[in-house]
Nucleic acid binder design. Structure first.
Lengths: 201, 201
DNA sequence: GTCTATACCCAGATAGAC
DNA sequence: GTCTATCTGGGTATAGAC
């Protein structure tokens, strides 16, 4: 189906060169049709980008709330949580398409308000709040000290991982996604131990 | 001097809209001359960008190595170091111009190899190595535990601050620089305590 | 050093034949 | 649904008068 091929190739090109760095002509060339034919499938360049964003948001916003689920077994120790949290965070990104679009989000965030707000709320604030809830529960159950600043703990934990992502998608691009995700789990695991070790009773 | 005005306005516009998002026409309009007159001062658009980068690099790469200096007084405690480290990191950025160009670097890093390499080496790897040295000294003087992974400690400390920068320059833009820098010092101070608390003997 | 005028290119998008 | 042809607008850059 041509429409799908356009989307696929647009994801490839946009995620590599950015939205402004790719022309309709270039997309058409790679798809193997003329520019004008694109407009039979999408009303314009912006419409392709919208389709990409809608796909991404549809995939990433699903109905499970894994951190809260994990919190039900608070006795399993901290190791259990960062694994649950990280896995929840990563499970949606394991597809190559999703990784590409994530890079595109990082690229476009500086001048696209929709992307900026999505990153801010769904990717940063949402998870941070999840970790705040978890640390609060841990505090209530005397797993971590009472004088801990849970918001600071959450940010201290989460922002480290966020920068690993930025580093991967921007600074180290192009770098193998699989290899990075392995490294990411290992590093955030070590990082989580540092944070938890500092807070535990 | 017109040449300086061109540079100044280019910094303003590039840092807001990105290099590709600004035209020579637009720069000329804001300067108050015609496009063609720009070429009496700079050989082209790229040359303006080069001048901006050279200015930035000239300002940021100076001869002091503050972390190593700070390490000479290792007995002053950890508080002393993150303050020294953070201040060293921030002192170069206190000018409005430097903050603007830093945002420009974040924006352009995804497709400008020079910027990418500069961020990678001077902004990330350099400071991380400084902290690695410091943590190694602390280990040698039995200030932190012997089984600490100093590379992980350094990244765990430093990447948090890096993401605060990304958040400020991209996600929260436009946000007051002064206010952010205060917040940054407060947050990284708290973060440093968490990291150090986890590692200390 | 600045101006007008212009060359040249590539962008997004549309009309209408097949 | 794809094509050719074309429109319109914006971009960088240059030539040459003042």
């Amino acid at each position: 189906m041509t429409k799908n091929k356009i989307l696929d190739i647009s994801i490839d090109l946009f995620s590599e060169y950015g939205y402004d760095g790719v022309s309709i002509r270039q997309i058409a060339r790679e798809v193997g049709i003329r520019e004008s034919s694109i407009y039979n499938h999408y009303s314009g360049k912006q419409a392709i980008l919208d389709a990409i964003f809608n796909y991404y948001i549809g995939e990433i916003v699903s109905d499970d709330i894994p951190i809260e689920q994990a919190a039900l077994n608070l006795d399993k120790g901290f190791d259990f949580f960062y694994r649950a949290g990280s896995e929840a965070f990563l499970s949606k990104l394991r597809k190559e398409r999703m990784m590409k679009i994530t890079r595109l989000f990082f690229i476009e965030s500086y001048h696209n308000e929709h992307v900026k707000n999505f990153l801010k709320e769904a990717i940063i604030q949402g998870p941070v709040n999840g970790w705040i809830n978890l640390f609060n529960m841990m505090k209530a159950k005397n797993v971590i000290r009472d004088d801990c600043d849970v918001k600071q703990l959450s940010e201290s934990f989460f922002y480290y991982g966020m920068f690993l992502f930025y580093e991967h998608f921007i600074i180290n691009y192009p770098e193998d996604d699989e290899k990075f995700l392995e490294e990411f789990l290992r590093k955030t695991e070590n990082h989580a131990k540092i944070i938890f070790n500092s807070a535990k009773i």
